[in-house]
Amino acid sequence: MNATNDPETSSVEAIVLAADRGACDPVALDAGTRCKALAPVAGVPMLERVLNALEASHRIRHVHLAGPPRDIVDAEPTLSLLLQGEHCYWHDSRSSPSASTVAALDEIERERAVLLTTADHALLDGAMIDEFLESAQARQLDFAVALVRYDTIMARFPDMRRTATRFADGAVCGCNLFAFLTPAGRELAGFWQRVENSRKKPWRVIAGTLGIRGVLRYLTGRLTLDEALDRLSSRLGVRIGAVMLERPEAAVDVDSAEDRQEVETLLASMHDR
């Protein structure tokens, strides 16, 4: 992996969530692969695309794979060879994405900044990663999340279905890019785990953190993104910030067979330009 001139202060560890959430992942079934991460997009497994993006980044020091299961890794020559190197490590996945993240973070020195992404981020590239990390670190945040404005996505991909969170100052979509920039920032992984553990009523945890006034402002369309993040920061004791990325591709992941087909079509059109 590449690193900047002072790797001890500016390089970042990366965690890639690469395990399936269930035994019958629809993308894996559609692709005929043993797990979603290995489903090919335009002939290249999605996990390989993500690893190539991390390799192209100027910021990434080591990569930590949370999954796929070890028997799948051992059966894949490319993954097995990769894990024999000095810059990539495998970790057993846990019962949920948040639990896998917490377990992987526990294996990484606490002072290290950590980028978190997913194996289905088929359009990720090194420039996106560098832009996100440079902006987050320049703002001295504890935890950062990458977002793209919904209008930006619709302008580029009008037929693509994306889940948006609507605030008073506009709707945004997540990018499956997060950064734990300080030891304090790692507390957000524990908060995420509490939300996931409240499977039946996760909004109770979020509402309890935002506060009644924050929830009411959101429900009435008066809560801005910055206000929401400020409230979370204050109540959790962590400096949380959003990094707005301009490239809509940053918000595209592959959660269904239709997504996979759309991404392949998009890659073909980009290649033809």
Rank of each mutant, 00 (worst) to 15 (best):
A250C: 10
E258K: 14
T118Y: 07
P183H: 03
V102E: 01
A207Q: 14
R139W: 12
D74S: 13
E227A: 15
S95W: 03
W203Q: 15
R273Y: 07
H64P: 02
T220D: 05
C35W: 01
P248I: 06
T118C: 15
A164T: 14
A75L: 13
A146L: 07
R213K: 13
V73K: 02
H64K: 06
G185S: 04
T118A: 15
A242K: 05
A136C: 04
W192Q: 12
S233C: 07
V102G: 03
A39S: 11
E262Y: 11
T117N: 00
E264Y: 09
A250E: 06
S234D: 13
A18K: 06
A207R: 14
V238E: 07
L216D: 09
P69K: 10
Q137K: 10
R112M: 14
T118V: 14
S256L: 13
R231W: 05
C24W: 14
V27Q: 00
D25Q: 03
E258F: 08
R260E: 00
E13M: 10
G85L: 10
L177Y: 03
G85R: 10
A189G: 01
T209W: 06
H91R: 11
A122M: 04
G126C: 08
V243L: 05
R239F: 07
T209V: 10
E249T: 15
L47T: 05
H58P: 08
A99I: 02
V16T: 04
L123G: 01
